[in-house]
Design a binder for these strands. Structure first.
Lengths: 339, 339
DNA sequence: TCCGTCATTGGAAGCGCTTACATTCGCCGT
DNA sequence: ACGGCGAATGTAAGCGCTTCCAATGACGGA
């Protein structure tokens, strides 16, 4: 019964048992056309009996193809990346390929891991905030098909991003439309290309309105550091801002809690906006920006596939549009949640 | 510059350029001990110049090992699975192996995909609600190391789950403690082992209190179907329940919205509980059950590794504890959110 | 000075599969 | 009745790597 140490069944054993050559087995199990129907059936039956499962390594080596694509992202803890990865997986699996994932968050040897991943796939998607441009360039230089997601261009590599700057400008404009004049930005443009774009749009809107530029208040991407940074920002007495544009929803949610703790009402005393439209934001009545995350992943997957099959021509760059989601937190007159 | 069609560099070219044999290259790049330092340096320099990246397929074939683990889950859209996968990835990557993912949601050929995946990994984790027991048994029978996550035992396969029944019993008991007597269960025990366990605990608590058993009200796992099912349930006049235990937070959130739309106050007219403690539940003041999802994934990863390296003995089964998170929606006297 | 040792390197087999090419054989046309 | 053709199958050459074993050569002890 189920021996402890069992070597996997190989094509040779199937061939033996079916009384044919390994070539015939291979053919019977794949290009069914080239094999006489009775033979094919026999081989398939034997393969089934033996629980034969062709080794991908053998096949990959023979075909010179892994039939697998990779995706590199910072982490999966927020809903953001999970959605992107899901959109990616969906398309890639549909193309008959497997998906390798790599989360770089908190790993100091990310570049090395990415290089290692590169050796197992036919192409990969690299998201912003994972590895530096030099690493990307090095891999691209290797000839491996690549698509960058939510990060600035590097060389001639394809790029798919969601709009940040224009939306940020519109969002900030909306805030200004409410009469707010003392604005702050919570997030660190240096930490992520997305945040950099958002801050740029924020700044542009200030300039449009003839306001003085402001320095960003640095914060990580999670609720906790949003809370900490906001608490600090909101405590400095007379210079307290009327509105805070946050780098993402989690930070905004942290800021929201900080405001509560300080006895400030939102949006009464303070307007607040986030980014990403995560589910929690709906319930927190948070004004935010919605991105088609799944679509981002799916698009990247399709483009990568075109690169792999050599269809694609020159480098392509696409910016997917985003959508403002106005809820109560920005001081809007709506104070029922959106649909 | 950067020719279109570039074959990947192989170990042979490196050997040529460095003036050594491929054996030496292989050694220089791995067991640095066995090669004279000057030779090693030279080889490494050439490898670097050539951007040599060993083909994993070749290596896998030679070593008889993929150095990769798989994980199969229903989907990634809720925060639940994303967290589990993240915990898994973290540990697996630490062990120097790659992670292959497979989402079965909405795919009719899941069994086939899982079998295919089995051919590329040294072991894999299969979560509940993905493929049926027969498929699991078939793969286990192949000798491939397996760990089941959040699903009932199959044969002698290791199993890691979070407690469902006891927590459901406690949760339901809590509801009863508030004086509610007309309870309903929203979710489909047949759709997932987790839900089955939760319903069992729910039923047990009813029995404990000497109440009549109730039929579950079927619902999928998403907000929308929670809404639909709840709307239906809450509309049937005189038999309207006082409290609804939902299969997960998303369903509960849908029910919450349905209640709002029907003009019912929560918890005034209706008590509501969820499961999973997703972020949105915090803001919706939803009473729920918290599971250590990351830990689930991490534990599964570690166990799988022990199976792969042949350390582990007989089949092991672990049930990770969960924690009740009491918030306002169940009619508790607390109506401030927890910390 | 000779031989055994050991460090270093090369030769070559083999991992499991695909596929170009060779072989076999039944069948048709003439 | 024979040549030829095509369908069915077999043979064998790799794919890129690891690793066992053999070969080489320097060095130290006797």
């Amino acid at each position: 019964m189920a021996g402890r140490e069992r070597r996997p069944v190989t094509i040779y054993e199937v061939a033996d048992r079916a009384g044919v050559s390994i070539a015939t087995v291979s053919r019977a199990l794949r290009d069914s056309e080239l094999v006489a129907p009775p033979t094919r059936r026999r081989v398939q039956r034997v393969a089934e009996e033996l629980r034969f499962r062709p080794s991908r390594a053998g096949r990959a080596l023979a075909e010179g193809q892994h039939a697998a694509n990779g995706i590199v992202f910072p982490d999966l803890s927020g809903p953001y990346y999970a959605e992107v990865v899901l959109g990616y997986e969906e398309v890639v699996a549909e193309l008959g390929r497997s998906v390798l994932i790599l989360a770089t968050q908190g790993r100091d040897n990310a570049a090395e891991l990415v290089a290692e991943l590169a050796g197992r796939v036919d192409g990969m998607v690299i998201m912003g905030r994972t590895v530096d441009d030099a690493t990307v360039a090095r891999i691209a230089d290797t000839g491996l098909p690549l698509v960058l997601l939510a990060r600035p261009r590097v060389g001639l590599v394809d790029t798919v991003t969601a709009d940040n700057t224009d939306s940020a400008r519109a969002l900030t404009g909306h805030l200004l439309g409410h009469g707010h004049r003392e604005l702050a930005f919570l997030g660190d443009p240096a930490r992520s290309p997305d945040v950099a774009g958002r801050f740029a749009g924020f700044s542009a809107a200030l300039a449009d309105a003839g306001l003085d530029p402001v320095e960003p208040v640095r914060s990580e991407f999670d609720v906790r550091s949003g809370y900490t940074a906001a608490r600090e920002l909101l405590s400095r007495g007379r210079t307290r801002p009327e509105a805070v544009v946050c780098a993402n929803d989690e930070v905004a949610l942290g800021a929201l809690r900080a405001a509560e703790d300080l006895g400030l009402s939102v949006p009464g005393d303070l307007a607040l906006t986030g980014w990403d439209d995560i589910m929690a934001s709906h319930y927190a009545r948070l004004t935010t920006v919605h991105q088609a995350m799944r679509e981002l992943g799916a698009t990247a997957a399709r483009w990568l596939d075109e690169r792999i099959s050599g269809v694609a021509a020159g480098a392509r760059h696409e910016v997917l549009p985003t959508r403002l989601v106005i809820r109560a937190s920005c001081g809007s007159h709506h104070d029922r949640p959106d649909e």
